[in-house]
Design a protein around this nucleic acid. Sequence first.
DNA 1: TGCCGATTGTCAGCTACTGACATAATCTGC
DNA 2: GCAGATTATGTCAGTAGCTGACAATCGGCA
Lengths: 224, 224
Amino acid sequence: MAPTPTAPANAETPCRVLGLRERKKQRTRDALVDAAHSLFLSQGYARTTIDEIAAAVDVSQRTFFRYFANKDEAALAVLADAEDYFIECLRRRPAAENPLQAMRAAITESWRGLGSEHTGGVRAALELLQLIESTPTLLAAHLRRTTEQEGVVAQVLADREGLDAATDLRPRLLAAVFGAVLRVSHLAWGSGPFPDQDAGPEGMIAIIERHFDQLGPALVGDWR
Amino acid sequence: MAPTPTAPANAETPCRVLGLRERKKQRTRDALVDAAHSLFLSQGYARTTIDEIAAAVDVSQRTFFRYFANKDEAALAVLADAEDYFIECLRRRPAAENPLQAMRAAITESWRGLGSEHTGGVRAALELLQLIESTPTLLAAHLRRTTEQEGVVAQVLADREGLDAATDLRPRLLAAVFGAVLRVSHLAWGSGPFPDQDAGPEGMIAIIERHFDQLGPALVGDWR
DNA sequence: TGCCGATTGTCAGCTACTGACATAATCTGC
DNA sequence: GCAGATTATGTCAGTAGCTGACAATCGGCA
């Protein structure tokens, strides 16, 4: 949902004040995400059991699985929010920008927006990215999620340009290339840290920009 | 290893005739891959248990896990061979081609070579691709494998061009973009079948070519 | 207050996967 | 051919992820 502080009213929230039941549910969910996140980070993903996470929040294992379909989903929940926020940023980009420009601007914007006051902040997202790179199971799940998101991105691009995503190959293709650039950037960031690397979002943004700048050169010519 | 019929002698095979033990191992492995493949295809991935596969080959479940680290690995074994073959094709491409040309040529070449007399043939690979697209777990595992292979591809490209893969971003970037084009192509192929679609490798090759041709247009300009 | 629906806990069970140990098959040097 | 070292395999027991079914409990609402 990517709640922005400037837009409290949402079409899907008829009542401003949610019932006690809803609030409680939200709280347990957040607690589960937090517990999972810190446990995974401190002892590793594989060495952390669902029972541990559930015990930390004082709920049963069964309840955990009512909130998350599986262990992966709990781990990647933080990034899921960030991705939704990116989609929203992309939707809001001015129509004057061409697709590639819009995506570059949206990814920068979303990292910065995440940094200021979003859920958990950039901190959690960056920690998670590093955990993902070093955990094969998580990496697989993350890549699948990412790939699914590319479909959404392609649809947004097609809408922006007034094209039919079913027949025109370009939206899906560009979304996939964009995803590839991001993945390589994340990898490069994870294999750092570089001496001049910013701990906040700016470090990641710089690396992503550098990769985008190399995209053209990588595709054309002889590299020499 | 991608055994080609014209090159029986291999540097890693000191003796022409492998021992009985080795041959037996190879036979059970092949049998397991075949059994897994046909069971997954006929009843679906999730509804097939390891016990079933092991029973079909008349070995214990424990033996299955001595050949494959997990269920995914057995399912994707067919594609693993194909990927190794692609890498080999890429290595053999003439140095005159630039990186993108070499990869386009290598992927076409490997699909055709797979078609003529390779293990299992194109048939199995194409069936598997469709199963993958409709099985979330398998898709995740496949994407992870694919991503890992991109590292190998990047290294091959760097070697070809005499670059250092650790510092130059282009090899990894191009490998990732190439992977993205392939993934979208596979997806498009799976969401077919189109009326004019060839059942053999040529149908897939045509789709991949079409996507490559759209890569430039997708990246530049305003799409209108 | 009292009813209704939603959330949760408990329990039983399945399946993927692993370590430990015993058995049986192959290979090696004689 | 034959002992003895290797190595593949089977059996067994156990852990962890995940699910369905049912009962208890809690929040919403008249």
